[in-house]
Design a protein around this nucleic acid. Sequence first.
DNA 1: ACAAAAGTGTTCGGCGTACACCCATGA
DNA 2: TCATGGGTGTACGCCGAACACTTTTGT
Lengths: 244, 244
Amino acid sequence: MSGNDLPGYDKHAYEPFAVTVDLAVFTIRDGTLHVLLVERGEEPYAGRWALPGGFVQPDEAAETAARRELAEETGLADVVGLHLEQLRTYSEPDRDPRMRVVSVAFTALLPDAPEAHGGSDAADARWVPYDRAAGLAFDHDRILADARERVGAKLEYTCLATAFCPSEFTLGELQQVYEAVWGTALDRPNFRRKVLATAGFVEQVAGASRLTGGRGKPAALYRAGTATALHPPLLRPAPEGPSA
Amino acid sequence: MSGNDLPGYDKHAYEPFAVTVDLAVFTIRDGTLHVLLVERGEEPYAGRWALPGGFVQPDEAAETAARRELAEETGLADVVGLHLEQLRTYSEPDRDPRMRVVSVAFTALLPDAPEAHGGSDAADARWVPYDRAAGLAFDHDRILADARERVGAKLEYTCLATAFCPSEFTLGELQQVYEAVWGTALDRPNFRRKVLATAGFVEQVAGASRLTGGRGKPAALYRAGTATALHPPLLRPAPEGPSA
DNA sequence: ACAAAAGTGTTCGGCGTACACCCATGA
DNA sequence: TCATGGGTGTACGCCGAACACTTTTGT
């Protein structure tokens, strides 16, 4: 509960908990998954890369703090289409060497990946390919891995993939999202049919089209639909044998 | 991060956060989903039913606190086969009228549902059918609904259902788990084949069998297997039309 | 003999997979 | 006219839905 009453509990008597937020912000760049990192300006872990984040203020919810910190640290203002979602909470007593810190982690997805720049507390902020993001401060390696796994799983049974795309996008771009996050190639004709067969996933923008690679037939443009769930799901190819 | 450094930050200067855990503990009784509730002994919400939970101590992780509180409040010692899993964190500033409380919610699944009894802080503890658990204290109605939805979703693509069953169980009992959580009837022959076709989901106990309803053919007994994921998933019937 | 519950067999339609093929555009 | 990427068609196999049927027990 929130109310297991310790009679006469003095809220200043205990060593207080600090509550922070950490953000795993993803985007697709050049067809590969990138994550937003900041370079720490102070000890501990000064000079190391870390997930953006910060303290939750006394009067704000964790979700609010996450959006605020993202803006403050990386210069990414409240971008339209920022998809923010709670991941889980990390509460091991020794995860921060200075004091007891409980951190609520979030995943965020961005469409067109504006350039990031260092802000208040961070020396620098940068988009880094997911594969090269290792050796982060604190337990951020683990948080980042958890976040990527969660995003990959949610692509299967939700319409989340459109959160990686700008307001108008081609089916090829949507497919790149799946391929970048899952790390596997998909069959284009089948992907196309699957997406179009799911009512409310995407809706075509009448008459609009765009060239993608300089060459080739212009692709039709689509907008995100109103559906959120994906029935039936779009399963990623099983790493091992499907059944047996 | 956990480390957006406020220079000269005094950990006692701010109004501290209290960090609590809340537990949505489920079991199957008489073929229907039940949840464990405690009757609050003190204000606020004295006399109202609530999810069990309590404060996280300064030196323990939230998971540890969850197990401890469950034992203290409901007399359920560390039951073998207790499946505990983080749900999400609730951090709205006004969710507890007394002070700022951030609560990490957990879902827990129990097999055979031992009777519960009131403990330290709770006046009483009781198993309540899920449908009759409404009007709870704080934001526990919402937490409970989130927990049920999560459990239902996880049944589809994990082997979680065995966590509701004792160490040896029949396929009929396993099917009851799905039917109770999803609130739908399933076809027995197909369910059986699906479960047996998934390697590592269950393994038969050689030669053992048990009568279930007093009459009928004795059912073979199974144990939980080693697999955790369910590939391909066991999808619940779609509420609306499957595609179209 | 009957009811009840477990377990088996079989049919049928749809969906996912694989791959061949056509279309439109730039170089 | 060739390369490149978008888009359509199609054949096959497997899996899930539905349901008939057999088996084993208690009353």
